[in-house]
């Protein structure tokens, strides 16, 4: 699988030395279809991308896998509440473990394998050097609960939603690289409640339509959509919980360093039905390119600039871009060709 060639030397977890290879840049999920942006229910079938594309497989594994998992382990040690489940969610947890193990072993057989003999399962993760024999359905046969166990080995953030009363409830999840929200606070909220702070979208009926769509997602047809924001510095953990640590980075952006510091952060949100609990999984797979990396594709640079120029002020403020939006637009100016 060409897209999972991992560097011989492990890259550092964060900071300027952490780079995207040209292959990673080429397969970046650039989110803008037009020159302006508004919230919409932009769902498309998941896992149907071209070979080596970010959505070739349902769950994408890329060159940052090991680094991201090490970062997750560090974050969970400092703050175990980043992986949390309400008591009724155990079936959803097992559904998640089964889904990830099945997909990873099918789609990346060089890195992962799964052997099953009834409920006796044998899982191998060669990237993290893990061998595990356990009994599916028996929590005591794993070192920790199933969601924590498997998400410590799975790229992206993972939200398990219970589907009941025609609504979706944020009842479990592992969230170590969110874009400015807090799982611990939002735990237990309904779909509209946890999307409460998002401006404009409610009035536009976006969430009502989204829920109608989510209600009908069938187990054999997962869906995906793209979301985006700007992050300063190559910082994965931008949760509300740590805002006091990364918020001040926004003050350090200058016209000279904005090309290196400002990152287009894209979330690939994958929504498969969970098999036995009938819940819905919400995977948030995060990709980041600095403006410099992004501008190696001039068409992307031009489009991003136009999107930033036309972005409604409420959305700009909600995404936290007020301090450096103009600097980004200026830095991208050479890519505007008037066409």
């Amino acid at each position: 699988m060409t897209n999972t060639k991992l560097p011989a030397v492990e890259p550092p977890l964060m900071g300027d030395a952490f780079e995207n290879s040209p292959a990673a840049i080429a397969r970046f999920p650039f989110p803008f279809l037009g020159d302006s942006y508004m919230y919409s229910v932009n769902l498309t079938p998941a896992g149907k991308g071209a070979p080596a594309a970010y959505d070739e497989h349902l769950f994408d594994v890329d060159e940052h896998y090991v680094a991201e998992m090490k970062l997750r382990a560090l974050i969970l040690e400092k703050d175990p509440d980043r992986c949390i489940a309400l008591p009724h969610m155990m079936e959803h947890q097992w559904d998640l473990l089964e889904l990830i193990m099945e997909k990873y072993s099918q789609d990346y057989p060089e890195h992962f394998s799964l052997e099953r003999d009834g409920d006796d399962w044998h899982w191998s993760n060669r990237l993290l050097d893990i061998e595990e024999r356990f009994v599916f359905g028996d929590v005591s046969s794993l070192p920790c609960e199933p969601m924590e166990y498997i998400t410590r080995q799975a790229q992206g953030d993972w939200i398990l939603m219970d589907h009941r009363e025609g609504d979706f409830w944020l009842d479990a999840g592992t969230l170590t690289l969110p874009a400015d929200w807090s799982l611990r606070f939002d735990l237990g909220m309904s779909f509209d409640e946890w999307h409460g702070p998002v401006p404009l979208a409610h009035e536009a009926g976006v969430f009502k339509r989204a829920k109608q769509f989510l209600n009908r997602i069938r187990p054999d047809e997962p869906w995906q959509r793209l979301n985006w924001t700007i992050t300063i510095g190559r910082r994965w953990d931008t949760s509300s919980d740590t805002y006091h640590e990364w918020g001040p980075d926004r003050l350090t952006v200058t016209p000279e360093n904005v090309g290196k510091k400002a990152h287009l952060r894209v979330e690939l949100q994958v929504l498969p039905r969970l098999a036995r609990s009938n819940g819905l999984l919400f995977q948030i797979r995060t990709y980041m390119l600095s403006l410099e990396e992004l501008s190696t594709n001039p068409a992307w640079a031009k489009r991003l600039r136009r999107v930033l120029q036309t972005l409604p002020p409420e959305i700009s403020a909600y995404k936290g871009m007020t301090l450096y939006r103009e600097m980004m637009i200026d830095w991208l100016e050479p890519f505007e060709d008037g066409i």
Binding site: L187, H244, L251
Partner: peptide
């Protein structure tokens, strides 16, 4: 932003930026 489960509102650092 309010959590019904805990009956609490969220705060956020006001002067980080």
């Amino acid at each position: 932003h309010f959590s019904r489960r805990t009956g609490a509102y969220a705060g956020v650092r006001v002067d980080a930026e």
